[in-house]
Simulated assay, not measured.
Amino acid sequence: MKQIISRLLIAILVILALASVYIFIYYYNNQDVNDIKVEGYVLDSSNSQPLKDVKVTVINDRYENDNGHKNYDEYLGQDKIELKTDTKGYYSIVLKKSAYVYIYTKKDGYKPLEEKGKQAQKLLTFKTYMNRSK
């Protein structure tokens, strides 16, 4: 009987330890990251030449809203920043807080494009190839 109780107690302790590790990892990964640099290049898909004056819209999702309320189960805050590429097709911005970033590009004569979103980290780099519209 003592063996059964001790095995049961060990099993319960292992389950509690694993649950604690899971909760720690979940909340560690689901936090806003401060001072994110988002940068990228936009290029013509047919010749890899840089595209200037591309309208780049950065959508920044945050767990914290504008009033400081946080909820790590859903995004409460969102920023929409519009940029233009330079002559080298380059753009960049620093975001104060971020959890997830999407990029949309638009230019006359090209098909608009949504770049796959990325989880926030200190440096997010995008390389976008746009196709000409027919």
Rank of each mutant, 00 (worst) to 15 (best):
Y75E: 06
E114Q: 12
K52G: 00
K2G: 14
I10F: 11
D79C: 07
T85Y: 04
Y91E: 12
D66H: 04
V94W: 03
Y129H: 03
G77S: 07
N71W: 05
N65D: 15
V21D: 08
S133C: 06
E39A: 12
I15Y: 08
N60G: 12
T125A: 13
K37P: 01
K2V: 05
K134N: 15
Y91A: 04
D32R: 00
G109K: 05
N47G: 11
P50F: 01
T105C: 13
Q49K: 15
Q3T: 05
A19L: 12
G89A: 04
H69V: 10
L76D: 03
T128A: 09
S133R: 06
R62F: 01
N34Y: 09
V101G: 06
G89T: 05
K116D: 13
L13V: 10
D32G: 08
D35F: 10
K55V: 08
T85I: 07
G68L: 06
H69K: 14
E115S: 15
L76Q: 02
L16R: 02
K2Q: 14
V33Q: 02
T57A: 07
V21H: 03
V94R: 14
D79I: 03
K52L: 01
S46M: 12
N67S: 14
I12T: 10
F24T: 02
L13M: 09
K96C: 00
Y28Q: 03
Y104S: 06
I59V: 14
